[in-house]
Amino acid sequence: MISCTEFIPAYSELFKYLHAKGGEAAVRDFWNYLSDNFLGNLKSLAEQHGIRGCWMYWSHTLNEEAADFTMELDEDKGKFSIIMHHCPSKGRLLELGHITPYPDYCGHCDVLYRRVLEPLGFECTADLSRTDRAECAFWFRKIPAE
């Protein structure tokens, strides 16, 4: 058994394996597949609760992942944000001296979540410019119906 505490390096190595098989496109195909087949919980919460569904989803995952973060929900404005002060996943990968993270490891978050939320009428913005320090930020806004 690969423990869930060892999953992140397994995930990163899977991206490397797929990249060796078919380049960036093969990795993207997998991210799309995972988004379509593994994020049903996020989709259901966003469908049922709107922007609060994002708060509910990440309240669960980020606490279980022991992340260092600030989340903010402004339901009146239909906005939700995550400021990741230190990502536990990328942080672990950077700490491992004997394996190198997949170069675009953090790209999966943007692809996976955007693919679920944009079709539901959410605007998604990501800042991945500081992932080399395990920092990132995501902003989501529910676009009001016309």
């Binding site: 869930c4 505490t5 999953f7 309240s59 995952t61 980020l62 606490n63 279980e64 992942e65 022991a66 992340a67 260092d68 973060f69 600030t70 989340m71 903010e72 230190h86 536990p88």
Partner: peptide, 12 residues
């Protein structure tokens, strides 16, 4: 909601 890594156990 603000959390630090030490606030939770890493077990997802």
């Amino acid at each position: 909601m603000t959390r630090q890594a030490a606030d939770n156990v890493y077990l997802h």
